[in-house]
Every structure is written in C-alpha cells, then in structure tokens.
Simulated assay, not measured.
Amino acid sequence: MPLTATYKRTSATQITADIYLPSPSTSPCPVLINIHGGAFMLGDSRMVSIPQVNDCLSCGWVVVAPNHRLCPQVNIRDGPLRDVRDCLEWIYSDDGLDRFLRESEEGKAYAVDKEKVMAFGTSSGGMLACGLGYDVPRPPRAILNFYGAVHFTHPCWTQPIPAIKSKLPRNLTPSFLEQVYTQEPIPTSSNVSLEGQTETGQSAGPDFSRPRDAFAFTQIANGAVIQACCPDPEVRREIDPVLNVTKEFPPTFVAHGLEDKMVSIEVSRELVRVLKEAGVECGMVEVPGEGHTFAMAMEVGGRTWELQRKGFDFLERVICS
C-alpha cells in the first residue's frame, strides 16, 4: 500500500497524493508524478495502472500519484491544473516530499533527486502532465503523455460519441445532472474512473443514479467535456498545451492508440508537430489496435506493453543525460 501525504490545503479540503516507494537505495531517487485520467470529472489517485507503477519502482523511482479537485464546479485551470502544479512545487520544496519522507517511518531512508522529477498522465491526466511544462517556476525534466486531452480547437472536442450516447438512460433530467454543481466541498475523488475501474481495482461501469457519473458521461457522449470543464474560450486558449510550447518546454513523449474513438489521435500528432517545430526533444508511439484508456487493460509483456514502454525508456534516457 502507498503512503498518503497531504500536499495542499484549501479552505474546504485537504488534497492528498499517494506515495509509492521503490526498494531502498543509498542514492537519491528520481520522482515520477503519475496523474490519473477521468475527463477531469472522474477518478482519483488510486485509479492508476499498478503494473506501470511497479515498473517505475523497479527503476528505482518514487511514484507520486496526486488527487486533484474535480470539474465542473471548478474549471480545469483553477482546479485540476492548479492542484497538480502545486503538487510539483511541493515536490521541489524543502518542506514538501523530502520532509514528508524524513518524518515517516517507511520513508525516512529515502531522499529525492530534485534534478530528476518527471511527469506522466493518461487522458485528462496527460493534459495535466503537459500543463506542468509551462507557466510554472520550475518544470519537470521530462513529460510522458498518454492519449492526453490537448489541442482544444480540434473538432473531436465537439463531436458526440454515439457508442456512449446509446448507453445513457433516457430519464437523466437537467435538474438531476446539475446536482453535480452542489457537491460540497468540491470532491477530489469519484467512485469510478473513465476506464470503469474502482479504487479496489475492480471493473465497474458508471452508476447513473449518481449525479457525477451521469453528468460526466453525458458530457462525454455529447462531445462537451472541454466546454463543461472549461467554459471560457480564453481560459481554454491559456491552458492548451499545443498553444504553450516554446523551445524551453521539457522533452516530451506521447503514446496514443490508433483506434481511439474518444480522443482523436490527431490531437497528439499536432502536439508532437509543434514540439518538433519548437526544437523540443520529443517522440511518439502510435499503438496499433488500441483505443482510449488502453493503459488500464494491457497485459504485462504483451505487444502494447512493450510499445508503451518506449515512453518510460524516453524518460529514463532524458534524466540520465
């Protein structure tokens, strides 16, 4: 089981991160921030791929999986993105991760190598990982983005998804869906992830008797996720990673399934295009036969596993250069 640290306090809530520790080492450990997906509205820190976490631990990395406030009560910039940026600052701070480890029985043997901090995320978490590459005092050394929500002007962000729409109950009224805006405090976790995973790792579909599940899947089905989670077009432009790449952007690798029907692979291709144009070290793997959220279903050692490993090899290469 991971350790749990509070990395941020707001007036209404404490926001936590799960800390996974590798085997003890005499050397300071690199750190990977692992940001969960969930269309900015679902999921939490326990809904990450444990095989991926274990793979990173075998490299000697500390893995930090943060929670963040969930949309739509707060927009992407002021909620999820602000929170994960604060988590990054907490990791770099002398009073942050290092202090937490020193003061915990399980972590006191560990030190953090702050020159080797990396960021990784899936889906909405991929966007948030990329969001650590700009408008921060000190970005991570490298970023790994799995099928992230970027390039907000692409048509895929306004196109309905019939396969999901057909599964929505017909009795979801606006007044019921809008109950999501009344949750207090703003939640940092939900009962199910976009992948259908629960905190226990079991598979479970959305429960449409819960306003949050019903609201989130309605926005996904209607092609309205970005508008619901960031209504102001100016704010969307401010935070879109595709519009914020400069030559100072951290080295970045992208993985995306060729059969993704929820987030067009074209948004990742556009991100890689602007990274190359800016002269940023980057790479991409397009995974045959895989749709959205494939990271949660792949088998260790299988073809998809070996292809996605190229992203983690990229991180290792950057931090060791």
Results as ranks from 00 to 15, higher is better:
43 G>Y: 09
126 G>P: 09
206 P>Q: 08
173 T>F: 01
3 L>G: 11
310 K>F: 05
292 H>S: 10
58 S>E: 13
226 I>D: 04
246 T>M: 11
21 L>Q: 01
158 T>H: 06
204 A>G: 05
107 G>Q: 01
103 E>D: 12
20 Y>A: 04
250 P>H: 14
249 F>K: 07
262 M>T: 11
220 I>V: 15
127 M>R: 09
52 Q>V: 11
42 L>Q: 12
106 E>C: 07
223 G>F: 05
286 E>I: 02
224 A>Q: 14
171 N>M: 02
163 A>N: 06
121 G>I: 04
96 G>I: 00
295 A>F: 14
214 A>H: 07
183 Q>V: 15
68 H>D: 04
189 S>I: 02
148 G>V: 06
3 L>Q: 10
81 L>H: 12
295 A>T: 15
40 F>Y: 12
46 R>G: 03
93 S>P: 09
163 A>R: 08
237 R>W: 04
127 M>C: 15
302 G>R: 03
289 G>F: 05
289 G>E: 02
14 Q>Y: 10
265 I>K: 14
278 A>D: 05
127 M>Q: 15
194 L>K: 00
295 A>S: 14
13 T>R: 14
147 Y>Q: 07
150 V>I: 07
229 C>A: 15
13 T>Y: 02
8 K>I: 00
132 L>N: 08
29 C>L: 04
265 I>S: 14
126 G>A: 06
252 T>R: 10
317 R>H: 13
266 E>D: 15
298 M>N: 06
76 I>D: 12
262 M>G: 06
36 H>P: 08
116 K>Q: 07
197 Q>R: 15
146 F>M: 13
195 E>N: 06
275 L>F: 12
306 E>I: 02
103 E>P: 01
209 S>R: 07
15 I>M: 09
73 Q>S: 14
82 R>F: 15
216 A>P: 06
291 G>A: 08
111 A>L: 14
145 N>R: 00
173 T>V: 03
188 T>H: 08
157 W>T: 00
48 V>Y: 02
211 P>I: 00
59 C>P: 00
44 D>H: 13
30 P>H: 03
73 Q>N: 12
170 R>M: 12
289 G>W: 03
307 L>E: 10
176 F>S: 04
265 I>D: 13
255 A>R: 00
189 S>A: 12
67 N>K: 03
91 I>H: 00
297 A>C: 03
103 E>F: 04
32 L>C: 11
84 V>K: 01
170 R>G: 15
240 D>W: 04
40 F>S: 07
282 C>V: 02
134 Y>D: 14
274 V>P: 03
55 D>W: 13
165 K>H: 06
207 D>S: 04
167 K>M: 12
138 R>Q: 13
122 T>N: 11
283 G>F: 06
120 F>C: 14
61 W>M: 09
183 Q>S: 13
193 S>D: 01
70 L>A: 10
319 I>G: 06
58 S>P: 00
1 M>L: 11
35 I>L: 13
116 K>W: 03
302 G>A: 05
35 I>T: 12
66 P>A: 07
140 P>I: 01
140 P>E: 05
278 A>L: 05
113 D>H: 00
203 S>E: 07
161 I>T: 04
18 D>A: 13
58 S>K: 12
80 P>S: 14
189 S>Y: 08
243 L>W: 08
77 R>M: 13
142 A>F: 08
